[in-house]
C-alpha cells in the first residue's frame, strides 16, 4: 500500500480546482441556508445559468469574455428572482421543491435539440474561455511541492478560483457581521418575529437568495472555464448535494465552514479513490475480492458517505459549527 501516494492524491484534490469550485458553490449555499435558512436545493441550476450565460454570450453574441462573465452572473441573479418571487412568501419547503425542479428542468432544456443552435444541446459549447487562458501570467511548467504539483494551466484556473472564494467569503463576512446579517440570521430563527419588528422579511430573503445564487453562478463560470467546455451533464443535481455535504461537513453559518468543508470533501473523495485503487491492487484486507477496478469510481462514495455519516452522528455541527446552535434547531 502506497500510503503517501494516497495522502498526496487527497491533498492535491483538496487544494485543487474542484475543491475551489465546490467551496464557492457552498459559500453561496451558506448565505442562503446557513444564515438565512433558505432551502435552495437547486444550486446546480445557478451554476448552470452562470456557465451557460457566459458561454452563450461569447459563442452566440461574440461578447468579450469579461462582459460575458457579467452576463453569466446576471443570468443567475435573474434565475433567483424567477424562483424567489413566487416562493419566498410561502413556507420554506416550497422553495426547496421549486429550486430542485428548476435545476433539473434547466438541465433538460439546455440538452434539448430544439435549442441546439444556442446551447449546443448534448454536444455543448467549447472554446469560449480562450481569453482567460491567453491571459495566464504563469510560465509553462509544473508547480507545487513534493508529489503534489499542478501544470501552469491548472494552477492559473485554480488560483483564480481560490481568490474568488476568498473575495466572496470576505464579502459574506462583512455582510453577516453587520445589522443586515443580524436581520437575516433572525429570519432563520423566526420570520414572524422579524416581521413584527418592522422588517420586510420577503425583501431580505430575496437578497440572500440572489447573493447566494450569484456566488453559485460564479462557481459555474469557473467550472466551465476549467473544462473549457460546457455541456448539460456538468450540472447534475449531485453538485447541489456535494456542496451541501461540504457545507455541513465544514459547519453551517461559519465563514470558513464551506471552505474547510469543500477541502475535506474532495480530500475524502480522491483519497478514497486512491485508497481503493491501491487496496484493489494489493488486495488490502481482501478488498480485491469485493471491488473490481471498474467499480472504484462509484464505490468511493460509499466510503465518503460512511465518513460523513460518522461525522454527522458524532459532530453534527461540522468542523467549525456551534453545537449549541445546531441543537436549538431540534426544539
Amino acid at each position: 500500500m502506497n500510503w503517501t501516494g494516497i495522502l498526496s492524491d487527497g491533498v492535491r484534490a483538496g487544494l485543487g480546482i474542484n475543491a475551489a469550485i465546490y467551496a464557492l458553490a457552498a459559500v453561496g449555499l451558506n448565505v442562503q441556508f446557513g444564515y438565512a435558512g433558505l432551502w435552495n436545493f437547486g444550486q446546480a441550476g445557478f451554476l448552470l445559468v452562470g456557465g451557460y450565460g457566459t458561454a452563450i454570450a461569447v459563442s452566440s453574441w461574440g461578447l468579450w469574455l469579461p462582459w460575458a462573465v457579467l452576463v453569466g452572473i446576471a443570468a443567475s441573479i435573474l434565475l433567483g428572482l424567477l424562483l424567489g418571487v413566487p416562493t419566498l412568501r410561502l413556507r420554506g419547503d416550497y422553495l426547496a421543491i421549486v429550486t430542485i425542479a428548476a435545476a433539473e428542468i434547466l438541465r433538460i432544456v439546455v440538452n434539448s435539440t430544439k435549442v441546439q443552435s444556442v446551447t449546443g444541446g448534448p454536444q455543448g459549447i467549447g472554446g469560449f474561455a480562450n481569453w482567460f487562458f491567453d491571459h495566464n501570467p504563469i510560465a509553462r511548467g509544473r508547480y507545487g511541492f513534493g508529489t503534489i504539483t499542478y501544470d501552469q494551466r491548472q494552477l492559473w484556473v485554480t488560483l483564480v478560483t481560490w481568490v474568488l472564494v476568498a473575495l466572496a467569503s470576505v464579502l459574506v463576512a462583512l455582510l453577516v457581521h453587520s445589522p443586515w446579517g443580524r436581520v437575516v440570521r433572525a429570519i432563520r430563527e423566526d420570520e414572524d418575529a422579524v416581521r413584527s419588528l418592522g422588517k420586510n422579511v420577503y425583501s431580505y430573503k430575496m437578497q440572500a437568495l440572489l447573493l447566494g445564487g450569484a456566488i453559485g453562478g460564479v462557481a459555474g463560470i469557473m467550472l466551465v472555464f476549467d473544462q473549457q467546455f460546457i455541456q448539460p451533464d456538468l450540472f447534475q443535481s449531485a453538485i447541489t448535494f456535494y456542496a451541501f455535504a461540504a457545507l455541513i461537513l465544514g459547519g453551517t453559518a461559519r465563514i470558513l465552514g464551506p471552505i474547510l468543508g469543500a477541502i475535506a470533501f474532495w480530500f475524502l473523495v480522491e483519497g478514497a479513490d486512491s485508497f481503493l485503487g491501491n487496496a484493489v491492487d494489493h488486495n488490502f484486507l481482501g478488498v480485491g475480492h469485493l471491488v473490481d477496478p471498474t467499480q472504484i469510481g462509484t464505490f468511493r462514495f460509499v466510503l465518503v458517505g460512511l465518513v460523513i455519516m460518522l461525522l454527522v452522528i458524532f459532530r453534527p455541527q461540522g468542523f467549525l459549527g456551534s453545537r449549541q446552535e445546531v441543537m436549538l434547531g431540534e426544539q
Binding site: 445589522p179 443586515w180 443580524r182 430563527e189
Partner: peptide, 27 residues
C-alpha cells in the same frame, strides 16, 4: 417568539427601526 439562536442583545438591536446598516449596499 424570542429569537432563540440570537443573543439577548442581538434580539434588542434587531428591534431598532431605520438602521442604515440593514441595507445590503451599506452593510
Amino acid at each position: 417568539k424570542a429569537l432563540a439562536g440570537l443573543t439577548v442583545l442581538d434580539n434588542m438591536l434587531l428591534g431598532a427601526s431605520g438602521q442604515s446598516g440593514e441595507r445590503i449596499v451599506v452593510a
